[in-house]
Design a protein around this nucleic acid. Structure first.
Lengths: 344, 344
DNA sequence: GCTCGTAATGATAGCGCTATCATTACTTGA
DNA sequence: TCAAGTAATGATAGCGCTATCATTACGAGC
C-alpha cells in the first residue's frame, strides 16, 4: 500500500530543470520545445513514472479525453464486433472509450448524449441516422468529431461510416429470386430503424418481381434470438404454408429457422430457402451452411475511431458519408438453382 | 449552438442565497444541511439545469466516479451478458463504467489496472482470480471496492461473485456418465485459467469413473468459435473414433460439434452425446436441443455492481466470496439413458 | 453566568493541470 | 545601428469543485 504522493508535473519539471508549463508542452506539443529540453523531460517522466492526471487536464483545458460511443445493445453480436473494432482502433492513443447503452430507446439515447455533451468529449460515435430531434440537436451542438456508424445516408451530422441496409436487403432478395424461389417470406424481430430499412428493401424488390405477399411477413417487436427465429418460422408456416424462402432480419433468426425447418423435416434449401443477415461466424459452420449478407462490422468500428482520431489530430471537422458496402455470401441454404454451391 | 457559460456551483449558490460549499454539501450529503436550505438548493439546481463537473469534482476530492471493469473479451457472448448486468445495475447511480479489454493477455491486464489505479476509481470489477503477481499487487493496493467475478475461490482480494468452474465441470461430466456414456472426450479452445479448471474437473471425474483417455482430449490455444468446434470434433474423431460423448469447453464449440455430427450423419445423442457450457440462448433452440451448464452471467454482473455500490454507500470494505452456483440443463443432445428428455 | 458541546454554515486554500500573456535570446533587413 | 520579427521558455491566473478549518447560534449542565 504505497502512500507516496502522486507524481505531478512540478516534480517532473524540477527534475528536468524547466518550468511546469514547459513539461506540459513537451508532452502535448513536442515540436514547439527544443530537442534538448524534450529529451530531458522525457527522461524525467520515465524516471519518476509520471502519469498525467486526466481530471486536472480536463478541468484546465475544458476538454476531456473521453470518446463517447452510443450503441443500442451490448449483448448483440453485431455490436460486439463493432466494439472490438473501436477498442482495437483506439489502442494506446490516450483516449478513453465511454459506452452508453440505449436499449433501442430514444429517451435513453438523449440522456446518454446529454451526459456526453456535459463532459465536453473528445469525440462521439453514435449508431445510425435515426435520432430523435432532441438527439439530433445535441449531436449538432457538439464541437467534437462525430461519427455515425452502421448505416449510410446522404446527410450525416458530420461523418458517417456504414452501408445501405436497403441496398443490402435488395441484393439478398434478388439472390433468392435468382435461385428460383417465388413465394418469399420475411422474418423480423425488434424492427428498429435499420431493420425497417431492410424490410423496405425486401418488400420493394419482392413486389417488383411479383413474389411478395404481406401474409408472408411475420415480425415481432421483441428482441431477436434463435428461439424467436424458430417461433417466427412456425408462425409463418401456419399462416402461409406455401412460402418457399425466407429472408431473415438477422442471423439469429435465420439459425432458428434452420433448426425449426430441421425439426419439421423440411429440406433446406429444397423446400425452404433461408437467408440471414450479418454473416456471423456461425453461419458458415452451420449444417447446412447458411447464406447471409456479410456486413463490415469490425471495419466500421475501426474506421469510425480512426476518423475521430484523424479529425482530432488535424483539428478539422470533415463532412463525409463513407459507404463500406456489403457482400452476399451465398451458401447451401439457398442453393436451389442448378449452380449448387458446396462449402466444406 | 448555445454559447452560454456553463452553470457552476456558484451560480446555484447565489440563486439559492447560500455559499457554494453549502450547495456542494446539499448535493452530496443532504442530511447535514437544514431542510429549508436543501429545498432552496434543489429548486435552484433545477431552475438552472445545473450538472456537476466530474473533472472538477475528481480533482478536488481525489476520487473519481469511474468504475473500472476488466474483462478479457468484448466479443464473447458470455461477457456480453455480464456487461449487460453491470450496465443494468449501475443505472443512474452517477457512476461511469470504464471498460478495459485484456484479450486474455496478462500484460494488458496489468496496463489496464495501472491506468485505473492512476484514476483513483470508485470501484473495480475484474474477471477471475488468476491475475499475475503485478496485477494482484495493483488490486491489493486499491483503496476502492474490488469485486472479482466469473469464478469462485477461497481467497478473493476483497469480494468475489461467481461459481466454481471445477465443480460445474464435475457435474456435467457426471451427467454424461449417468447417461451411460463410457468413452468421454473433451473439446477445448483458448484454455484460459477458467477453461483449465473446467478441464481439470472433467479429467478428475472421468478418471475416477474409468472413462478417461488423454487421446480423447483435443484443445487449441486459439479463440473459441462454432467453426472451431466442428474442426475439433473432426480431429477428435480422426484420433479416437471410439469416443461416445464430448464435453465442450463452451457452447460455441458444442454447437459446432452438433453441426459436424450432423454432417457426418452421426446420431446425437445416440452415437455421440454433446454437452456445452454456459447455456447460451441458442442451445435450447438448437436441433437437437443441446445439454449445457447454465451459468449466472447476468446475475454476476448485476450482483458485482451492486456489491460495489453498496460498499461505496456504506463506506466499508467487506471480504466475501459469493458462490452463485450453476445448473446442469439436460436436453436431448445427451439423452441416451432411458429417461429421454423431450424439450419443445 | 459561564463554559462547553452540537448543528449549521461559511471562508479559504488548494487539487494538477493548461490558456494566456509576458519575457528572453537571437536573427534579420534597411 | 536599431526596430522588428521569431523561437523558446516562463509567470500568472484560473478551470469548478471539495477538504479543512473557522465561525455562528443556541441550548445544556454546573
Amino acid at each position: 500500500m504505497t502512500k507516496e504522493k502522486r507524481v505531478t508535473l512540478d516534480d517532473v519539471a524540477s527534475l528536468a530543470g524547466v518550468s511546469a508549463i514547459t513539461v506540459s508542452r513537451a508532452l502535448r506539443q513536442p515540436d514547439v520545445v527544443s530537442e534538448k529540453v524534450r529529451a530531458r523531460v522525457e527522461s524525467a517522466v520515465r524516471r519518476l513514472g509520471y502519469v498525467p492526471n486526466p481530471a486536472a487536464r480536463q478541468l484546465a483545458s475544458g476538454r476531456s479525453n473521453v470518446i463517447g460511443v452510443v450503441i443500442p445493445s451490448v449483448t448483440n453480436n453485431v455490436f460486439a464486433d463493432v466494439l472490438r473494432g473501436i477498442y482495437d482502433g483506439v489502442g494506446e492513443a490516450g483516449y478513453e472509450i465511454q459506452l452508453a447503452n440505449t436499449r433501442y430507446a430514444p429517451s435513453l439515447e438523449e440522456n446518454a448524449l446529454r451526459l456526453f455533451a456535459s463532459q465536453k468529449p473528445a469525440g462521439v460515435i453514435v449508431t445510425g441516422f435515426d435520432q430523435s430531434d432532441a438527439s439530433a440537436d445535441l449531436l449538432a451542438g457538439l464541437a467534437c468529431p462525430v461519427v455515425q456508424i452502421m448505416d449510410h445516408g446522404p446527410t450525416p451530422a458530420q461523418m458517417s461510416i456504414g452501408f445501405s441496409h436497403f441496398d443490402a436487403a435488395v441484393a439478398a432478395t434478388r439472390h433468392l429470386i435468382d435461385q428460383g424461389y417465388t413465394r418469399l417470406g420475411f422474418l423480423g424481430a425488434r424492427m428498429d430503424p435499420r431493420t425497417q430499412k431492410r424490410f423496405n428493401g425486401f418488400r420493394q424488390t419482392a413486389m417488383l418481381a411479383g413474389v411478395y405477399s404481406e401474409r408472408r411477413v411475420v415480425t415481432t417487436p421483441e428482441a431477436s434470438s434463435v428461439t424467436k427465429g424458430a417461433a417466427l418460422l412456425s408462425d409463418l408456416l401456419a399462416i402461409a404454408p406455401e412460402v418457399d424462402a425466407v429472408f431473415c432480419n438477422n442471423d439469429d433468426l435465420a439459425l432458428g429457422a434452420v433448426f425449426e425447418a430441421r425439426r419439421r423435416r423440411l429440406s433446406v434449401p429444397g423446400e425452404l430457402g433461408i437467408c440471414g443477415f450479418n454473416d456471423l461466424e456461425m453461419m458458415a459452420a452451420a449444417e447446412p451452411p447458411v447464406t447471409s449478407v456479410r456486413t463490415p462490422r469490425l471495419e466500421m468500428g475501426r474506421r469510425a475511431i480512426e476518423a475521430v482520431l484523424t479529425s482530432l489530430a488535424a483539428g478539422t471537422r470533415d463532412t463525409a458519408a463513407i459507404d463500406l458496402g456489403f457482400e452476399i455470401v451465398a451458401r447451401e441454404s439457398t442453393a436451389r438453382a442448378s449452380t449448387l454451391l458446396f462449402h466444406k
